[in-house]
Design a binder for these strands. Structure first.
Lengths: 231, 231
DNA sequence: GGTGGCTCAGTGGTCTAGCCAATAACATCG
DNA sequence: CGATGTTATTGGCTAGACCACTGAGCCACC
């Protein structure tokens, strides 16, 4: 996808986004290597048929993402071979990456569960319980508890009180969401998932880090099976 | 990091970058919530004392990073509470976050070590050995082996063959680098670090995932002590 | 009473034109 | 030959204008 975001329902094709694409295409065509220089702004703008202002926006976008470096008085140099930008994007290209997502979840959430067991406050616990109840009632009424599932994991992440790890979770949250939906689509999965959550919550409640880590690991493993079935 | 890249030796403070900072500060001051609207471009540009073109660049930068959404005919709305942009930035604000970095390393590298033990190829192993030798000779000649240390961990990450986890490591690599330098500055640290690396390498060579994970965990814990001393 | 279309004010999107500032290559001087 | 000044080139930024989209209010028409 272009630079914007996960999804854009209907609206707004920004010119600079298109320009970014064209520049990246041009780079690929001409086989530019790292360190190579793009044409001068004036020239490039003319070639692309846009104003310098718009081209400048596109370059800002590319610079922010780390593809180029714009140097006053010197030129625009290629910093990265383009196409290797955002984590999420990089991954979405290959669709069969579910195992990888599981690995990442295993790494992050297991650690987070252990931390949560050590650091959770009563309100953290309350948030987890609330998510559990939400999931339970949703399942009872025939739902799949997707939202509750998500909230529970978010609550555990929050209870870990580790902003850095939380950030990394956010980084892959989109990917996780997809696996979650796939997982909970299986018949008896919601119930088993709820069960897994309870085990995790209990361990965290008891401040038992090792048990929390283990429970989380098993829970993630369960999701893994489902993901495997899907692929 | 600011928008550009890891580091900027000397050059070029771009105006739009400063504008981004000011806008984020303004958002924080006025306690804007997600979904809130920024002032109109014309007004905001006037208030900040820059042209609309420059403000527009700043907004592009913020949009690319996902902080705001610029909607034609509607306005600029806050998508994310700002200040929570790039992982690295968010953390650098507080200086005493070293424990957090250790937690993240623990989570990611332990898992990566285990994966590496299962998946390493001979060339992965060769890269690790090479890094070890480099570190050893550097230490022997009075150096601290910083580069070798970095290369070793990079080799382990590569051996894990998990692009997603590798991406996440890249995400926090800047932070890690800082702790690494601090850690290896301690007198006998380089030698102990090398020892730890050897244990990790041996486990990976033997394809013993559990041992690799354990060795990595201990190694990271050692760094943790140092980091603590520093703080 | 509601539904659809119209208008209009406000807002971002983009362009043109121009001058300023940094860089690097080159010419010049000692 | 080296240091230094000059200049062409390139990006940085501004100003002002006009276009396009959005949403709210209004009104004619069911």
């Amino acid at each position: 996808m272009s630079v914007g975001g996960t999804f854009r329902p209907v609206s707004r094709p920004r010119l600079y986004e298109q320009v970014v694409s064209e520049i990246e295409a041009w780079i690929a065509e001409n086989g530019l290597e790292v360190g190579a220089r793009l044409p001068p702004e004036r020239e490039l703008a003319a070639k692309l048929g846009v104003s310098r202002a718009t081209l400048s926006q596109a370059l800002v976008a590319m610079e922010v993402v780390g593809v180029v470096s714009v140097r006053h008085g010197d030129g625009v140099v290629l910093v990265e071979p383009a196409g290797s930008t955002k984590v999420v994007n990089a991954l979405r290209r290959h669709a069969q990456q579910l195992p990888e997502i599981i690995e990442a979840r295993d790494a992050l959430e297991t650690k987070l569960a252990a931390l949560a067991a050590e650091r959770r406050t009563d309100s953290d616990l309350a948030a987890m319980d609330e998510a559990l109840e939400s999931m339970e009632s949703d399942i009872a009424s025939g739902g799949r508890g997707v939202e509750g599932d998500e909230r529970f994991h978010a609550a555990v992440t929050a209870a870990g009180h580790s902003p850095l790890l939380a950030k990394l979770m956010v980084e892959i949250s989109d990917l996780i969401r997809e696996t979650r939906i796939a997982s909970l689509a299986q018949p008896d999965r919601p119930a088993r998932s709820l069960q897994g959550h309870r085990a995790i919550a209990d361990a965290i409640r008891a401040r038992d880090a090792a048990a929390a880590a283990l429970a989380m690991q098993q829970h993630v493993a369960m999701v893994s099976d489902v993901a495997h079935l899907k692929g």
